[in-house]
């Protein structure tokens, strides 16, 4: 058994808008190991979201190969992709994407409802457990509009991990959050990483990227750098230090 979680080979995505072709992603080759914690950076429009959508099986590549857990995802049909999204991947969005007028608990239960092999009767316990992992179980009965941005993002992360996927993708998960809540969310990701999850997240903030173990930079749809972060910061420690340096940070 290899330690490789996913491989992309010459992965490309071209949007065609009338006469114009937008090459959002150009022949990207990447290998992600199990247990990686990757931060993707790059200028706006460099193709980060496009790449994440392909990794998350939300979209299909125009060209190239994507192998996830030895599954040739690029050859899969819509139904198979649905199952992969549900079972293997947890996706966290910048603007949370929680269902309105639906409690935190029900939002977290959502992937379980669409899970073909899951039984329905233990879904409450599973959802509560996921909420406990991200430390928001006390708000289980709250509606999204009764939660702060950081709390909503925790609920969204709980939803992403409720089916216990080994692979978590997050596109600018701290993009809508202030410094403190950003670090709180990063602490959650670090904790998930410590528990063996593979994490790929996109961020514009170098500070946030410091919590990841590997840095990848995109430019014009290509990877221009791929470096290990040998000395990642610890979010929980930073949080302890934060009250003293609150406003200056």
């Amino acid at each position: 058994m290899t330690n490789t979680l996913l491989t992309t080979k010459s992965l490309s995505k071209t949007y065609i808008m009338g006469d114009i072709q937008v090459h959002a992603l150009r022949h990207v080759n990447l290998e992600v190991q199990k247990g990686d914690f990757i931060a993707i950076m790059g200028a706006s429009g460099s193709g980060k979201t496009t790449f994440m959508n392909l990794l998350g099986c939300l979209d299909k590549p125009s060209e190239g190969e994507y192998i996830l857990d030895d599954i040739p995802v690029h050859q899969m049909n819509e139904d198979d992709l649905t199952v992969i999204r549900n079972q293997k991947i947890g996706y966290v969005f910048q603007s949370f994407y929680l269902l309105p007028r639906t409690t935190a608990l029900e939002n977290v239960e959502l992937p379980l409802l669409y899970c073909r092999k899951c039984s329905l009767h233990d879904r409450h316990q599973k959802a509560i457990k996921a909420l406990e992992i991200v430390n928001i179980a006390d708000r289980a009965k709250h509606y999204p509009n009764q939660l702060s941005g950081g709390q909503q993002q925790r609920v969204a992360i709980a939803r992403a991990i409720v089916n216990d996927p080994s692979f978590i993708l997050a596109d600018e998960p701290t993009g809508n959050l202030d410094t403190r809540t950003s670090i709180e969310v990063m602490a959650v990701f670090q904790q998930l990483h410590a528990n063996g999850k593979t994490i790929v997240l996109v961020t514009h903030e170098p500070d946030i990227a410091q919590y990841a173990h590997r840095h990848i930079t995109f430019k014009d749809g290509r990877i221009i750098s791929d470096k290990l972060n040998t000395n990642p910061k610890h979010a929980t420690q930073d949080l302890l230090n934060l009250p003293q340096t609150d406003e200056e940070a």
Partner: peptide
């Protein structure tokens, strides 16, 4: 948007 969210967490066309 709700439909998109449902699909993203694993709802199929049939669902």
């Amino acid at each position: 948007k709700e439909i998109g969210i449902r699909m993203a967490v694993g709802a199929g066309k049939r669902d």
